[in-house]
């Protein structure tokens, strides 16, 4: 039995008299004890999917189960077993850290002491602020408190909706380390994020866009599916370089990536010839290197191909 099973889930919203398909026939499984990532841009349908799985919303069609329980018929039981951390900070800002935690512990019929071992590593970092109002905490602290509250009843499946959005780079890194530790406590974690660099930290990821799942695999597996050679290019005038590259017929795609441009050429292109052309156009310090694709490259590739298919 998988921790989460999603079968042909669709969800449609009525917005300004027209239907918006938030989820289109989504299916996937999350194995027990897995750290599963839902990666996709804003508006891809991640939150809607989470709300369906946490029994806050009903799907229009399809069915899903969490921990072997149906999200429609067994919603009461599911609510006892899952932990949910919404994307928006949803704890009581006018209650203190300690009060929030004991409030949620009591709602789940447990106490802080009983499950302290679960949250110890996280809570210890905010414990010295335990009398501070939750609203007065910094963003990273709020996340840690929210995670503690979602964990306090020892859920078997933990849903984290964009837990690292709006959190600084150091706290993000820490947060993912915490998730890794939680995995050892036999908690299945489903996490969504718009940051593709976080995809590599998951056991498996689903790339989701416009309510459709583009691909599900391990991060490695997804990277391996990128079959074309990927070039990393740079020159002294990066902006002009992008314009020039996109102007060439041989270039299939080119987009900026940090300090370089990632370029895919059509099959059989002579890259050396392209480089010569660029030098003629007054690009200096030109560099071009064949690199291994990362997950973001794969996602960009998938996004452009599916966009072409659907239009």
């Amino acid at each position: 039995m998988n921790a989460v099973e999603v079968n042909h889930i669709s969800k449609r919203f009525l917005k300004e008299k027209s239907n918006v398909d938030a989820l289109k026939d989504i299916s996937f499984d999350v194995k027990r004890g897995e750290l599963f990532g839902l990666i996709g841009p804003d508006g891809a349908g991640k939150t809607t999917l989470f709300r369906i799985l946490t029994t806050l919303m009903l799907a229009n069609s399809g069915n899903a189960s969490v921990d072997g329980l149906d999200v429609v018929n067994d919603f009461k039981e599911i609510r006892k077993r899952v932990g949910y951390m919404p994307g928006k900070f949803s704890l009581y800002q006018d209650l203190s850290v300690q009060e929030n935690l004991s409030f949620f512990a009591t709602l789940f019929n447990t106490t802080i002491e009983q499950n302290y071992h679960l949250i110890k590593d996280i809570y210890i970092q905010i414990e010295r602020f335990k009398d501070r109002k939750a609203g007065a905490l910094s963003g990273g602290m709020k996340q840690k408190l929210a995670l503690s509250c979602a964990l306090i009843h020892k859920p078997s499946v933990l849903f984290l909706d964009e837990p690292t959005t709006g959190v600084d780079a150091v706290s993000r890194k820490e947060f993912w380390e915490l998730l890794r530790q939680l995995q050892q406590q036999e908690i299945t974690i489903v996490v969504s994020t718009p940051y593709m660099d976080e995809a590599g930290l998951c056991d498996r990821v689903a790339l989701i866009q416009e309510g459709r799942i583009l691909q599900i695999d391990t991060p490695k597996g997804i990277e391996q599916k990128f079959e074309q050679p990927l070039w990393q290019m740079a020159s002294d005038n990066m902006y002009q370089l992008m314009i020039d590259l996109r102007g060439f017929d041989e270039v299939k795609s080119c987009y900026p990536f940090g300090q370089h441009h990632h370029v895919v050429f059509k099959a059989g292109t002579d890259v050396a010839a392209i480089e010569r052309k660029l030098l003629e156009r007054n690009h200096h310090q030109l560099e071009a290197r064949l690199i291994a694709p990362n997950i973001e490259d794969c996602f960009m590739e998938l996004m452009t191909t599916t966009a072409h298919e659907s239009h």
């Binding site: 029994t55 899952v82 949910y84 919404p86 949803s90 704890l91 709602l107 789940f108």
Partner: peptide
């Protein structure tokens, strides 16, 4: 504030 969301996933 959204706290009802968190309350609703409790039993």
């Amino acid at each position: 504030v959204g706290t009802i969301e968190q309350i609703n996933v409790t039993p």
